[in-house]
């Protein structure tokens, strides 16, 4: 994660942060008129930008997505305490694609082949779910919208947009950006780029955090933990049952229960 700090000494990276943020906000704001949840989220075709910018501009896109979302909220009249969770969620949304891509492939992220397209979908899904879990956890904790409504909606909104538009835009934009020498690997010195510590363990942590967070968040938010029991019939007539209320949790709310998984997400991001 070191390069999200070291990038600030490169003027071109600072400019790329501003350009990504402004572009993201400029495409987000007009679509505030098509809300999915009023004041919280809307139809967002702009959601493709953090993913494709991440694969090209690296850490600049992570900051750009975070700032762009904040600016979109401030200028679109939907700012509040939730905007800070939106900022954090969008930071992950712009951070994970390029980091995860580097551990999955050494080739350029142009989804020409089936293998690269599959990898593109994997990194988009990871980033989309991380963003969804982070924002929904925060907004449920603040009492804005229940997790089970917001979580799947943000995850789906992000992933569908990035999956549909990304493979169309990247093959056109990536070669041009590469020719202009604006890829983050060209702008930044090698010693300022972070190779990652235990990246495969980080993937395990991240997928555990986002999938576990999403499922547990929905289950708790729907209030089914108190009543549901799973029973497994074992050979010899024995059976083993698990009540969802037996699952160790820090508390009864989404906010406290998901905290360990949010911690795991941060640890995964640090190790990736």
């Amino acid at each position: 994660m070191r390069e999200v700090i070291t990038m600030w000494k490169y003027t071109r990276m600072v400019v790329l942060v501003a350009l990504t943020a402004a572009l993201y906000a400029a495409v987000l704001i007009p679509f505030k008129l098509l809300p999915l949840i009023p004041g919280i989220t809307e139809l967002r075709p702009a959601n493709v930008l953090p993913v494709i910018c991440s694969l090209m501009f690296g850490p600049a896109a992570a900051w750009g997505s975070a700032f762009g979302n904040l600016i979109g909220d401030l200028l679109g009249g939907t700012s509040g305490l939730g905007s800070y969770f939106g900022m954090l969620g969008n930071f992950w949304y712009g951070y994970f694609p390029y980091r995860a891509w580097r551990t999955l492939s050494s080739s350029d992220p142009i989804p020409w082949s089936a293998g690269r397209l599959a990898r593109y979908f994997i990194v988009s899904l990871l980033a989309s779910l991380a963003c969804a879990v982070q924002i929904s956890w925060g907004l449920d904790m603040l009492g804005f919208v229940p997790f089970h409504i917001l979580g799947p909606l943000i995850g789906l909104n992000n992933f569908v947009t990035a999956s549909l538009l990304g493979p169309l835009l990247l093959p056109i934009l990536y070669p041009r950006i590469k020719r202009w020498g604006l890829l983050y690997t060209d702008v930044m010195e090698t010693e300022d780029l972070w190779g990652g510590r235990l990246p495969y363990l980080a993937h395990l942590f991240l997928w555990g955090a986002v999938l576990g967070g999403l499922i547990l968040g929905i289950v708790i938010s729907l209030g089914v933990t108190e009543s549901q029991t799973f029973t497994l019939n074992l050979p010899g007539g024995a059976h083993w049952s698990l009540s969802l209320s037996d699952i160790p949790r820090w508390g009864t709310s989404v906010g406290t229960s998901l905290m360990p998984l949010i911690g795991l997400l941060v640890v995964g991001a640090l190790l990736l």
Binding site: A18, L19, A21, A22, F67, I71, L75
Partner: peptide
């Protein structure tokens, strides 16, 4: 970067 982004919108 944040203020530049605001101005570029």
């Amino acid at each position: 970067a944040l203020s530049l982004a605001f101005r570029l919108v």
